[in-house]
Simulated scan of single mutants.
Amino acid sequence: MNIIVVSDTHMPRMAKTFPPSLESYLQKADAIIHAGDWQTAAIADELNKFAPLYGVTGNVDEPPLHERFEKVIRLTFGSLTIGVTHGDGKGKTTEQRAMDQFKDANPDLLIFGHSHIPVKKKVNGTVLFNPGSPTDKRKQKQFSFGHLQISEDQWSIEHVYFDSKT
């Protein structure tokens, strides 16, 4: 199973269309996970044309997105448990706020966004993963998103980096 993980698309403000590097992966996706800051519901509608869509809301999302998606979700694909949250809020770091959302759940994988900074590290048995942003890299060298691959008894997640959103 191929799952594309995105966050902080901020569309259409930061891009009018999906970057070609991202779209090529979306075309082969079995599912898509969005960790918030879509900006408009139209982006969710467009992503849902590629594959089943799971997502959470972020701090810049319009009201229709908040009606459609939760702030925090838990997903299960086979034996893999996934927590998803945007990670916005006050105090602490983005990572700490995300971990606090799931402190009693201990998912295998915790996906979050907000900072636009790609992260992949293991903390107390949970892989923390921020895909970065495919449209708003801010001070990062490259744009990015995540590619989660799940087979019967194992899984892996990696960043996909690219230089141009056009």
Rank of each mutant, 00 (worst) to 15 (best):
A51D: 13
A31D: 03
F69T: 11
A44K: 07
K121M: 13
A35K: 01
K49Y: 03
P107E: 12
P118Q: 06
L75R: 09
F50T: 09
Q96E: 15
L110M: 12
I3N: 02
E62Q: 11
T17G: 00
N124H: 13
I73E: 10
A15L: 06
K16T: 12
A98G: 07
E152I: 05
E23T: 10
D37A: 05
N124P: 00
P52W: 10
S79M: 05
S156P: 00
I33C: 02
L109P: 11
H66S: 07
I150P: 05
Y25V: 03
D8H: 06
T9C: 09
T81G: 07
Y54K: 10
Q140C: 09
K49N: 14
F143H: 11
P131H: 02
A105P: 00
Q142Y: 13
N48E: 15
M14A: 15
V127G: 02
R68I: 07
N48T: 08
E62N: 01
D61P: 07
R97N: 08
D37F: 03
L148Q: 04
F129M: 11
P12K: 05
L47R: 02
V5T: 03
M11W: 08
K121I: 04
I117G: 01
I111M: 07
Q39G: 00
H10W: 06
F69K: 11
Q96D: 13
P19F: 01
F112L: 07
N130C: 10
M99N: 00
H66R: 15
V72L: 10
